[in-house]
Design a protein around this nucleic acid. Sequence first.
DNA 1: TGATTGGTTAGCCATAAAGCTAACTATAGT
DNA 2: ACTATAGTTAGCTTTATGGCTAACCAATCA
Lengths: 101, 101
Amino acid sequence: MQLDRVFGALSDATRRAIVMRLCDGEASVGELAKPFEMALPSLMKHIRILESSGLVASEKTGRVRMCSLQTEALATVEVWLAAQREVWEQRLDRLEMYLRN
Amino acid sequence: MQLDRVFGALSDATRRAIVMRLCDGEASVGELAKPFEMALPSLMKHIRILESSGLVASEKTGRVRMCSLQTEALATVEVWLAAQREVWEQRLDRLEMYLRN
DNA sequence: TGATTGGTTAGCCATAAAGCTAACTATAGT
DNA sequence: ACTATAGTTAGCTTTATGGCTAACCAATCA
């Protein structure tokens, strides 16, 4: 499922940092790599994982690959969480109703 | 980090299903296991992972272990997502401002 | 007390994740 | 044409994940 991949992608601090960086705008692979002490191929793997989750898209022009955030994928997660919250809040409401009577 | 574990816990459909079930109220390990074709020990592993992420708490009384959702852990994720959204929306706002002038 | 139920422990397997190095490709700059 | 830059591929480790079975403990119930 898509949610598997999105949650999985966000379960790593490096990848969350990349996402945070991309919230501020597009960046090349090199720019994304700078803050980390990691070897490039390792970082590329993270980018691949982010891409396969749908959180990031990238396009190569010349020898530079630019990456951008796909906010819809993050929205998917927000939607899922909101749905859960609704269920548990309804339950708490029922509980409160019950306790009042 | 805590977020690592929470996102990791939610990256599996079985565990998300458990979380969804617990949104509706407490449940024993046995009740949680029923909907799945999985062997009990496998399911227990998932419960352990959910516990170590802080999403679920459990307590054993007699021979029955009751599990409950810890909504604060889900809230942690919501907070992180909201923070990202704020950043990217600010950027889009700036972009719009720029395009207007 | 003996059997059943509810969960737990231990240990095995296959696959995937996260990192590395080394070597390679392809574009840009001089 | 040569060199430096920006990624990419391949292949290797180590550790974690997700599943299983088989055997085990502990609380009920008859």
